[in-house]
Design a binder for these strands. Structure first.
Lengths: 213, 213
DNA sequence: CAGGTAACTGACCGGTCAGTCAGTAATACG
DNA sequence: CGTATTACTGACTGACCGGTCAGTTACCTG
């Protein structure tokens, strides 16, 4: 006995997985793995809890899918970054950080980062996926760029992997800061501004001679 | 009917809270708030679960106490850092990072950091305590030192708060890296080495003139 | 417009765990 | 030594939540 024309649900097998993963990403990023409720994820995705299990075997499986999805677009970014700048190191440093900063502000990297850090202890294989498929690639690429610049005599001696770490750390901490302390009333860091100043500092700290203007 | 001289437990009201908090710190740092079991914390502290409730009203209360305790020794570190180096900025930068690195390796800062980042969304008031009582002080002190050095003409123009962020970020990321990716087989960063190289880079990046040897 | 298929629902189950409390035993004290 | 006090124990409870499944309903096909 239901009013005509308003079906209780629609059958949309193709779209469900994506919608569910998107809802799960939001929930996990907000609350972390353990505290996120499947019931709530289902509600956000506009389905019942049971429907989740038509597409994902377990909560961990869903988490895995979320991490995978959160990786894919970022990987593309990394690849693009490498491909675009074979030129002199000073030029790379001038362009890349701002681009990264923009992406960190656009994609929900902060939430995912928080999640990976927070749950790494309990779900090591997810930390492994995140590391092997994304972090290692990105760091490796940056590392190679630094090493190449050193070989060309542009950059001072020093461990290239550590240089890579130095380059990205303030941006990552800015994002973590935003997720952790801003909701609590702490003053924000403007990721763009941090990127600019850090680039400036690192340029004059790493280069063997003053960069051309 | 129990063998003589071996009491089932001792009454040690004074020592219990400290022991329980220490056990809880270890458990929370290892597993995070939600995944840590009160039963296990009690066992580590050598008491039954019921005993926890003689000293702490709820699990959250215990978490609060852990955060508070984890703050205290670090606060002392911050104060010492400020007090010890009114001298020229280059000298401060030469000594402080290595000292910080040592402390990051000694105290269980990594676990606590992970915990605060991971649970900030679910327990905002704890992030607030951590920020107001520790992070803000530390960052503020470093910020003041930078600003003073700028006033003396030692350090280039730029936002001092951002400079402070740049200075500490790689060390923090190193520690987070250790907690997150090393257990999964990722290559480690030697925090000491990172501290040395970063100090070097930042020195020549921030100072208005080459530092005296 | 049947009849069949499978996407979807939602009440339910079993396990887990924070929190309780009646009882027990260690100590303080007279 | 006896007795009062209270730190402490551990079996228990109630709520919650991941996961299940019998039933329901949208949609497809002839």
């Amino acid at each position: 006995m239901r009013s005509a024309g308003a079906p209780r649900f629609r059958r949309r097998k193709a779209d469900r997985p994506g919608e569910i993963v998107a809802a799960a990403l939001a929930a996990f990023a907000e609350k972390g793995f353990a505290a996120a409720r499947l019931e709530e994820i289902a509600a956000r995705a506009g389905v019942s809890k049971g429907a989740l299990y038509l597409y994902f075997a377990t909560k961990q499986d869903l988490f895995r899918a979320v991490v995978e999805q959160a990786i894919a677009p970022n990987m593309e970014v990394v690849r693009a970054m490498i491909a675009a700048h074979p030129g002199p190191f000073s030029e790379l440093l001038r362009l890349v950080p701002e681009r990264i900063a923009t992406l960190l502000e656009t994609l929900p990297v902060g939430g995912v980062l928080k999640m990976v850090i927070g749950e790494a202890g309990n779900f090591p294989e997810l930390a492994r996926v995140w590391h092997d498929r994304l972090v290692a690639h990105a760091l490796g690429a940056l590392c190679d760029a630094v090493a190449a610049a050193q070989a060309r005599g542009e950059v001072k001696a020093g461990d290239p992997r550590t240089y890579a770490l130095q380059l990205v750390s303030p941006l990552l901490i800015s994002v973590i800061w935003r997720e952790t302390f801003e909701p609590v009333g702490a003053a924000a860091f403007d990721v763009q501004a941090v990127a600019r100043q850090h680039m400036q500092t690192m340029l004059s700290g790493m280069l063997t001679q003053e960069a051309p203007p």
